[in-house]
Design a binder for these strands. Structure first.
Lengths: 212, 212
DNA sequence: AGCAACCAGTGAAATTGTTCACATATCGGC
DNA sequence: GCCGATATGTGAACAATTTCACTGGTTGCT
C-alpha cells in the first residue's frame, strides 16, 4: 500500500483533485466512480483505482468514491491543507498575469511577495501586493520560512535567481524561463515553456503548413 | 529506425532542441556529445542516443554530434522550418503576457491574431497586434488555414472556445485554463495549469508548512 | 603507425508503468 | 431476503521505457 510512490502517480493526483473539485462544484452528486473520473480525464478507471490504492482505500464497492471525502484525502496527501505562501520573482507581463490570477485561492497557494530587480518597478502595486526589490528577497523568504517560488524572469536571469532562492530555503520552483535549471538534490522544479509545449504538437501536424 | 515513435520520445525532442540552441548560442563549440547534452538536461546519455536513433544516425563515433546539423534535423522532424501562425484566444493579463513574449520568434511560432469576447477590448493594441472579436475568429482561422492556438481564457469559456477552434480547423491547442478539454481524435492538447504544477511538488514538502 | 581516449548506435536485460480480470462488497428494487 | 447491477482493490499479465554493456568507428597524441 504505502512504500515508495512513483512520481508519475503523484503527478496525476492534482488532476484527480481538480476533476473532483469540478464535480463538487457542479453539485448534484455526492459520489463518483473511477469510471466517471476516468472518462473526464481521459484516463483508464483501472489506473485511477491503482493510483489511489497507493495511499489507502478511499472508495466503497458498489458505490464508488464520496467526492468530498476523496477531495479531503487528496488535499491531505498533497499537503494542501495549509496555504503555501509563494514568492513570485519577476514583475513583467507574466508576473502581472500570475499576480492577478485568481486560481491560486482555495487550491493551496497564495502569492505572498513579488520581487523584481528593476528599481523602477519597486513599490508598484500588483493586485494586492507591492513589488519589492530582489535585494530583499532572501531575507524575506528566510524570515517567512517560505518553500515555494515561481520564476517569471528572462532566461538570462533564471539561474542566478534560482541560486538565490535555493540558498534562502526555497525547495519547490515553478519556472517559466526557457532554460534548464541546475539545482541541488532535494529541490523540485517544474518547467513551463510554452514553446516547448507547442513544439510537442507540431510533430503530429505533418501535412500542409500554413499560409502567411 | 522509423516506425511508430512513442509520444514520450517526441516530447523530449524540443528539450534537446532547446539545449542545442543554447550550446550554439554560447558558441565555442561545433560539436557536442550525448553525454554533455544529458548532463545539461538531467537525462542519461543512453536515452538521448536511443531517442535520436528513432529518426536516423546523426552523430559520429568518437566525435559526437555536430550541433548545428542536429538542430536542423530536429527542426525538420518537428516541422519547425516554417513559422506556424498562432491564434491567441483571450486578451486578459495572460494574453498580454503571451502577446508580448519574445520567445516565440526563431522557435517556430508567431502570434498572428488575438481574439477576445469583450467588445471593450476589441481594437486595443497588444504589442504589434490589434484585438479582434471572437465572432471573427473562425473565419480568420479558416481563411489562413491556421492549425495552432493558445487558449488563455477563464475555465468557464474554455470548452466553448475549444469547440469553435476545432470546428475552424485548429488541431493543436495549448491551454492555460484549469480544466480538461474534450476534443475529437486527431486534435492535440497541451495543458499548463500553474496550480497543478505547484501541487505536484508539495507532496514532497512534507515537513513544516509555513508561517503567515 | 600505434595507442589511448572518446563516443555513437543498438540488441538484450532490467525496470517501470498500465491494463486485465476477478473476488468481493454494496445498493436498490421487489 | 434475494437478485442484478454496480464498483472497488488487487495480484498477475502485459506493455512500455530505460539502462546496460558491447561493438566498432574516430580523433589526437606520441
Amino acid at each position: 500500500m504505502t512504500g515508495q510512490i512513483p512520481d508519475i502517480v503523484i503527478g496525476r493526483l492534482p488532476l484527480y483533485l481538480r476533476a473532483l473539485s469540478h464535480l463538487a462544484a457542479e453539485g448534484g452528486k455526492i459520489t463518483t466512480s473511477s469510471h466517471e473520473l476516468g472518462d473526464r480525464l481521459g484516463i483508464s478507471s483501472a489506473q485511477i483505482r491503482k493510483d489511489l490504492s497507493h495511499f489507502g482505500e478511499f472508495g466503497k464497492q458498489g458505490t464508488g468514491y464520496h467526492i468530498q471525502y476523496l477531495i479531503d484525502q487528496l488535499r491531505a496527501i498533497l499537503n494542501l491543507n495549509a496555504e503555501w505562501p509563494v514568492a513570485l520573482v519577476g514583475a513583467g507581463f507574466l508576473g502581472h498575469a500570475l499576480a492577478h490570477y485568481g486560481g491560486f485561492q482555495h487550491r493551496g497557494f497564495r502569492i505572498a511577495w513579488v520581487f523584481d530587480n528593476d528599481r523602477e518597478k519597486v513599490g508598484q502595486q500588483m493586485g494586492p501586493l507591492g513589488v519589492q526589490h530582489v535585494s530583499e528577497m532572501q531575507e524575506t523568504i528566510r524570515r517567512a520560512g517560505a518553500r515555494v517560488a515561481i520564476l517569471a524572469v528572462p532566461a538570462t536571469a533564471a539561474q542566478e535567481m534560482t541560486d538565490l532562492l535555493v540558498e534562502a530555503g526555497i525547495t519547490a520552483i515553478l519556472t517559466y524561463a526557457p532554460i534548464n535549471l541546475s539545482v541541488p538534490a532535494g529541490v523540485h522544479v517544474q518547467y513551463s515553456d510554452p514553446v516547448v509545449q507547442l513544439q510537442r504538437m507540431t510533430y503530429y501536424l505533418a501535412e500542409q503548413l500554413s499560409r502567411p
